[in-house]
Design a binder for these strands. Structure first.
Length: 424
DNA sequence: ATTGCCGGGCG
DNA sequence: CGCCCGGCAAT
C-alpha cells in the first residue's frame, strides 16, 4: 500500500545520492541487494529504466553504508533540517559499522578476507553458508533456516546502500550488480510487514501508516494524527519481510571456495530483519554492528583454534533469549527487543553456530558471562565420565560441510574427535 | 544407513 | 604429539 507522498519520495531520492557519494567507499562487488527502504514508491519504476545505469554505477562505486533514513513521515511537511539531521546522524552512526570490520580483519588474518574487505560480502560470496547440502534445509524446528538468503540480504543491504527502492532491484539488481550467484531468488513470495519494536509489543501491521499510528498512539501517547508527529515513530518499527519459500537457497550454492576463507561461518545470527536502514538501522548501529564485528573476530578465532585442535566454539549467541542481553544493544534504552522478538520471523541465520538451537542448554557452552548461572545446577557435570556423552545434537562439521569438503571441517572432526567448532 | 566420536594405532 | 581410523552407539 503505497502512501501518498510522492513529494517525499522524490525528495529523498534526490537527496540520498548525494550523500552516498560523499561517503563512498569502494566496496567492489557488494550488496547484492538493495536496501529497500520502504515498501512503496512505485512511481519510481518508471524512471528506473533510464536511471538504472546511473544508479547501478553509483551503487557499485559507492558502498555507502549510509542509510539514509527517509523520513517516513507521512506529511509533506518534512523539514529539510530534519531530514538532513537525520542523515547526518545516520551516517555517523552507521559508517563505523561498515568500516570496522575490515580493520579487524586486517589485524587478524590479512590475506584471507582480502577481496571486498567487507565482511558481509566475503561471507556471502564465499558461499560458505551452504547450509548443508541439498539434503535438508530448513527444519522447522530449528531456528536457523528459514530465510537465509533473503533475510540476510536485507540486513546487509541496508547498511550498504541507501535509497534505492524495491522497484529497483526488482529484477535486475541481483543479477546485474553482482556476478556472484548469491541471492538470486528473491521477491515474489515475499510480504512486507511492519513490526513494532517497542519493548513488549510485537505488533505487526501491513502498512507503514498503520504501524506509525499504532506507535504514535499506543506507545508515544500522542493522539493527534500523523501531522503532529515528528517522525519519531520511525524509530520504533521496522520493516520485515516474510517470505514464504526461499530458503537458504542462495546460500547453498557453496562454491568451493578455496581455503583462504576457510573459516566457516562462525556465528551468524542476524536477528534483525529490519530492512529499513533508517529505522532500526541507524540506532541499531550498536546492535547491528554487533553481529558483524563479532562474527569477524570469531572467525579469526576459529582459524586459530582450529589449528590447535581445539577450536573455541564460535561465539554464538543464541538469540533465543539470551542474545538479547548483548550489552551494547540497548542504546538509549529504547532498544526494542529487536533481536529476540523478531528472530523467529527472520530466521536468524544462525548458520554456523546453529548452536542457537532451541534446545537451549548448549548456551552455556561459551557464554559464561551471560546470566545463565541459574539453570546450571540442574545438569552440572554429567556423572563421572562414563557415558558416551550422549551425542551432540547439533550439526557438526561433517554434516554442515559434507564429506566432500572435509578440509573445511575443524580438526577435531577431521580426526573423528568431538567436534569443536559446533560444540553443543 | 548415517553420524558423532571414543579408543587406539602409527609415524 | 599430530593424524587417522576401526568400530560402537545414537539417530
Amino acid at each position: 500500500v503505497c502512501l501518498s507522498q510522492p513529494c517525499i519520495c522524490k525528495q529523498t531520492s534526490s537527496v540520498c545520492p548525494s550523500v552516498q557519494r560523499s561517503e563512498s567507499t569502494p566496496l567492489g562487488r557488494e550488496g547484492p541487494e538493495e536496501p529497500r527502504r520502504l515498501g512503496r514508491a512505485p512511481e519510481q519504476d518508471k524512471d528506473h529504466t533510464r536511471s538504472v545505469s546511473l544508479l547501478e554505477q553509483k551503487r557499485k562505486v559507492v558502498s555507502s553504508s549510509i542509510d539514509v533514513p527517509h523520513a517516513r513521515k507521512s506529511e509533506e511537511e518534512v523539514d529539510m533540517d530534519k531530514v538532513t539531521a537525520a542523515m547526518v546522524l545516520t551516517s555517523l552512526s552507521t559508517s563505523p559499522l561498515v568500516r570496522s570490520p575490515p580493520v579487524k580483519m586486517g589485524e587478524g588474518l590479512n590475506g584471507s578476507w582480502k577481496d571486498g574487505g567487507f565482511m558481509p560480502s566475503s561471507y556471502s560470496s564465499s558461499g560458505y553458508w551452504s547450509w548443508s547440502a541439498p539434503s535438508d534445509h530448513s527444519n522447522p524446528s530449528t531456528p536457523s533456516p528459514p530465510l537465509s538468503a533473503d533475510s540476510f540480504k536485507p540486513f546487509r543491504a541496508g547498511s550498504l546502500s541507501g535509497p534505492p527502492d524495491d522497484a529497483l532491484d526488482e529484477q535486475d539488481a541481483g543479477s546485474l550488480l553482482f556476478d556472484e550467484p548469491i541471492p538470486r531468488k528473491r521477491k515474489n513470495s515475499m510480504k512486507v510487514m511492519f513490526k513494532c519494536l517497542w519493548k513488549n509489543c510485537g505488533k505487526v501491521l501491513s502498512t507503514a501508516a498503520g504501524i506509525q499510528r499504532h506507535i504514535r498512539t499506543v506507545h508515544l501517547g500522542r493522539n493527534c494524527d500523523s501531522e503532529c508527529s515528528d517522525g519519531e515513530e520511525d524509530f520504533y518499527y521496522t520493516e520485515i519481510k516474510l517470505n514464504t519459500d526461499s530458503v537458504a537457497d542462495g546460500l547453498s550454492s557453496l562454491s568451493p571456495v578455496s581455503p583462504s576463507v576457510l573459516s566457516p561461518p562462525p556465528s551468524f545470527e542476524h536477528r534483525k530483519p529490519d530492512t529499513s536502514g533508517s529505522t532500526a538501522g541507524s540506532r541499531n548501529e550498536s546492535s547491528s554492528s554487533t553481529p558483524l564485528s563479532r562474527s569477524a573476530p570469531s572467525t579469526l578465532y576459529l582459524v586459530h583454534a582450529d589449528h590447535a585442535y581445539q577450536a573455541t566454539a564460535p561465539v554464538n549467541i543464541p538469540c533465543t533469549s539470551t542474545a538479547c542481553s548483548t550489552p551494547s544493544t540497548h542504546t538509549a534504552g529504547f532498544t526494542p527487543s529487536t533481536s529476540c522478538s523478531i528472530s523467529w520471523q527472520s530466521p536468524p541465520v544462525t548458520f554456523t553456530g546453529t548452536p542457537a538451537s532451541p534446545t537451549h542448554g548448549r548456551t552455556q557452552g561459551f557464554s559464561e558471562q551471560r546470566s545463565q548461572t541459574i539453570t546450571v545446577l540442574s545438569s552440572p557435570p554429567r556423572a563421572a565420565g562414563s557415558l558416551r556423552k550422549s551425542r551432540g545434537e547439533g550439526k557438526k562439521c561433517r554434516k554442515v560441510y559434507g564429506m566432500e569438503n572435509r578440509d573445511m571441517w575443524c580438526t577435531a572432526c577431521r580426526w573423528k574427535k568431538a567436534c569443536q567448532r559446533f560444540v553443543d
